[in-house]
Every structure is written in structure tokens, then in C-alpha cells.
């Protein structure tokens, strides 16, 4: 639709966003592989998955869900603010998003260390003694929340870079696609958590 725009300008707004969306698709497909393993093992070990799930802390899981959803709100608001030329407010919201992201990771850290402290981690004698179903459940738990956690970490690094750029003024109401793309990434990581939460913490 904006042929002139996309051919002659150095940056193509819609093009950048499209590239980002396609990158997000690759992330989705990456997680599809893991969800495939999950659904196969869940259908094979229903009882054991239920038993193992009830040993995860629903409180921490719910808390982390709330934290991440709220971080998505602040992320969206920061993009909204920079569009309306309010760079200061945008910067604050970006900072809040980073804060929530770190909060999420801290919770995750305590959750993992408690489990590891109880001798529940991949290839541990304690876990193998629990039988096949629970071995698979906790294997998937560490795998999927671990890779998700790495994505949160990457998002935090990305946002810190965006904060520097906003501060320097290279992100502004004329050129904010990099912040918007970082936002898209952050929201996608959130979407993945929205599925991880019920499949690990809420098996009834």
C-alpha cells in the first residue's frame, strides 16, 4: 500500500513489524516441539502428572502469572506513551516492565532452588525413584519453564537496550518500531506463559 514509503526510505515500518512477527512464529514453533512432548506424555501418564502437579506451588504460579500479565500491560502502555511523544512516561513504563520481569525470574529462582533442594531435578536419584510419569513431568517442567525463563531474560536485556535508546532520544514518536517490536517479543513470551501456567500448575 505504501510502495513509495517502503522503497525509498531507509526503514520500512510495516516491513520491520512483519519481520518481527515472523520471528515470533519461529518462537511459537520452537515451543510447539516442547508442547508436543508434553501432550504425548500427559496423555500417557495422566495420574502421575496430576500427582506431580499438585506438588508445585499454585500460589507462586498464580503470582507469577499476575506479575507477567501486568508487565505486559506496562509494556503496552510504554509503546502507547512513546507514540504520543511522552518519552519520560514511556521510560518509566519500560522500567516497570523490567522490574516485573526480574520479579518473575526471582520467584522462578526460589521455586527451582526449593525443588532442587528436595532432590528433584533431571537425572537425580530422588526424581527417578518417583517413577516414569513424574520423571517426565519434572523433566518437562524444568525444560519448558527453563527455556521460557531464558526468553524472559532475553526480553529484559532487550528492554534495557530500549531504555538506553529512549533516554538518548533515538526512540521517539517518529521512530519507535524497535520498541514496538521489543514489546511484541515481550507479549509473546507472556502468551507462552499463559499456556505454561495451567499445564504445569493446574492439572485437576
Amino acid at each position: 500500500m505504501n510502495k513509495e514509503h517502503s522503497l525509498n526510505k531507509k526503514t520500512d515500518y510495516t516491513g520491520s513489524k512483519q519481520g518481527m512477527w515472523m520471528f515470533l512464529f519461529t518462537e511459537l514453533l520452537l515451543f510447539t516441539g516442547m508442547f508436543l512432548l508434553y501432550s504425548v506424555f500427559r496423555s500417557r501418564y495422566q495420574q502421575e502428572f496430576h500427582a506431580a502437579s499438585s506438588e508445585l506451588s499454585r500460589t507462586i504460579g498464580t503470582l507469577n502469572t499476575v506479575i507477567l500479565l501486568t508487565s505486559s500491560l506496562t509494556m503496552a502502555l510504554s509503546v502507547n506513551a512513546i507514540r504520543k511523544d511522552k518519552n519520560k512516561i514511556s521510560l518509566i513504563f519500560q522500567g516497570l516492565t523490567v522490574f516485573f520481569g526480574l520479579f518473575f525470574l526471582a520467584n522462578k529462582f526460589f521455586e527451582w532452588s526449593a525443588k532442587i533442594h528436595h532432590g528433584i531435578y533431571p537425572n537425580s536419584p530422588g526424581l527417578l525413584a518417583h517413577g516414569k510419569g513424574e520423571t517426565m513431568f519434572y523433566g518437562l517442567y524444568y525444560l519448558m519453564t527453563g527455556i521460557h525463563g531464558l526468553h524472559v531474560l532475553a526480553g529484559i536485556v532487550l528492554l534495557l537496550i530500549m531504555m538506553v535508546l529512549t533516554k538518548k532520544g533515538s526512540l521517539n514518536s517518529d521512530s519507535f518500531v524497535r520498541l514496538e517490536n521489543s514489546g511484541l517479543y515481550w507479549h509473546l513470551v507472556d502468551v507462552i506463559w499463559v499456556y505454561l501456567f495451567p499445564v504445569f500448575y493446574l492439572i485437576s
Binding site: G183, V194, Y195, P198
Partner: peptide, 17 residues
């Protein structure tokens, strides 16, 4: 739980994204 998760994901995709 899968349906609710999909509703949430839909909201994030449609509005936040």
C-alpha cells in the same frame, strides 16, 4: 483451562500486540 488460556492469549494478541 486450555480454553481460558486461549481466551487470554487472544486478548494479548489482539490488543497488547
Amino acid at each position: 483451562s486450555v480454553l481460558i488460556a486461549s481466551a487470554k492469549a487472544g486478548l494479548i494478541l489482539l490488543f497488547f500486540m
